[in-house]
Design a protein around this nucleic acid. Structure first.
Lengths: 197, 197
DNA sequence: TGCTAATTATGATTGCAGTCATAATTATGC
DNA sequence: GCATAATTATGACTGCAATCATAATTAGCA
C-alpha cells in the first residue's frame, strides 16, 4: 500500500511475529497503521463457541486493521499471524498526519475502502442468496481476479477447504463435497487435493 | 452528508423520483454523486430468479451509490426509489474536485466508507455464523444504534418482515416466526404487527 | 365507511446442509 | 525414509429453515 521507505521516514517500525501470534483483538482500541511486509495474516471474527468467520487473508504488501483509523471505533475483527511474518507499523496519529500531508495517499486509502465495501457487497449477496456451489464460485472468482490467495504462475489456490468454509459460512465437509463435485463437472481441477482454476 | 448549499454552489441539481423508479442499475457506469433529500431508497442486488438482497435502505440525508466514485468500477448494486423521493446529484468530476479542494469533506467520506465496511464485517460474521434469531437481533441492534429505519420517538421499526428477510438472507415466514418468538420471549414487542424495541 | 391490497400469521411437508464418525491421502519434521 | 500431523474424503443420519398453501390482520384509498 504505502511505500516502506516513506513509512520509515515517518517513524514506522518493523515487528516480527511468530506463527499463531495475535496482532490485535476484535474490540480493542487501535494505536497503529499496519502493513504486511512478509508472511500472511488471518483477519477474522470468532464467536462464543469457537466458530470462525474469516473476513480476509492478508498477503504481503496489503494493509489490515485500517477501519478504526478512519472511523475512530475499535477493531472490527481479530488479526493473527498465520505463518512467521513481518509487519511494519506507524502510530495512528503519524499515519493520520501522513495522509493529511499527502492527498494522493489519502485518496488511495479511500479507494482501498471502496474496494473493501465492494467485496463485502459481493459476498453478502452471495451468502444471502446463493447455494454452496455458487458461494464458493463467487469467492474463488473474486480472489482469482484480484490475484489473492492464488499462485500467479500455476493457478493453485492457497487456501484449505477449512479456510474456504470459514470465508463462506459453510462446513468443511460441505466445501470438500462441493469442490469435488465442481471438479467432476470440470469447473475446476483437483490434483493431490490442491485446487487449480 | 454534504451541505446542500455547497452542493448547489458546485452545480448540483435536484431530481424528483416516483415510487418504484430505478435510479441506477448494478453494473452500470457511474456519472454522479447522489444524496437523498427526502423519501427513501432501496439499495439492493437481485439475482436471476428474482431473489433480492437489500444492502441497505437509505434515509434522508444519506448518500448512496458512492463506491464507483472512489474505485472507478461500476455500480455494485441497484438503487430504486421506495416512495416519492427527491435526490440531489453532482457530476462525478465535480464531486472529485470538491473533495480535492476540501480535505475535511474527503475525510468525512473516508470515514463513511470505513463505517460501511464495519457494518458489512458485522453482517457477514452474523450471516455466516449465526442462527435466524441472532441474525435478526444483530441487524436490529445495529440499526437501532445508528438510528436507522427506526422511529426516533416511539422506537417503531420502519421495516417490513420481508425487508428484514431480504437483509438477513432468510425467508419471510422464518422472520415472521422468529420475531413472534422474540416477542414471546420479551426481547421485543409486537403491536398490530409493528415491531418495537 | 367499506373495499382491495399488502402484510403478518400459521400449519404441513420436504430437502439439503450440518453433524458425527471414520478412513484415506498429503504434508511436514526428524 | 519413516512417523506424525494436517488435510481431504466419504457415509449415515438428523434437524431446521425453506417451501407451499391458506388464513387472518392491518393499511391505504376512493
Amino acid at each position: 500500500m504505502v511505500d516502506i521507505d516513506l513509512l520509515l521516514a515517518w517513524g514506522a517500525t518493523y515487528k516480527k511475529l511468530d506463527p499463531g501470534e495475535i496482532i490485535f483483538k476484535e474490540g480493542a482500541s487501535c494505536q497503529f497503521y499496519m502493513q504486511l511486509v512478509s508472511g500472511s495474516v488471518k483477519w477474522f471474527n470468532i464467536d462464543e463457541d469457537g466458530k470462525e468467520y474469516i473476513q480476509t487473508i492478508i498477503e504481503a504488501g496489503e494493509c489490515f486493521g485500517e477501519i478504526p483509523l478512519f472511523d475512530g471505533g475499535t477493531y472490527a475483527a481479530t488479526a493473527i499471524a498465520e505463518s512467521s511474518t513481518m509487519i511494519i507499523r506507524l502510530s495512528k496519529s503519524s499515519f493520520l498526519q501522513l495522509i493529511r500531508d499527502n492527498p494522493d495517499i489519502h485518496f488511495a486509502f479511500t479507494k482501498l475502502l471502496a474496494k473493501r465495501v465492494r467485496f463485502k457487497f459481493l459476498l453478502l449477496k452471495s451468502l444471502a442468496l446463493q447455494a454452496p456451489e455458487a458461494r464458493i464460485a463467487t469467492l474463488l472468482n473474486y480472489l482469482k481476479k484480484e490475484h489473492k490467495n492464488f499462485c500467479p504462475e500455476c493457478n493453485q489456490l492457497n487456501l484449505t477447504r477449512q479456510q474456504i468454509a470459514d470465508m463462506t459460512g459453510l462446513r468443511v465437509e460441505t466445501v470438500i463435497r462441493t469442490i469435488r463435485s465442481m471438479h467432476e463437472k470440470g469447473v475446476l481441477t483437483i490434483d493431490k487435493g490442491k485446487v487449480y482454476c
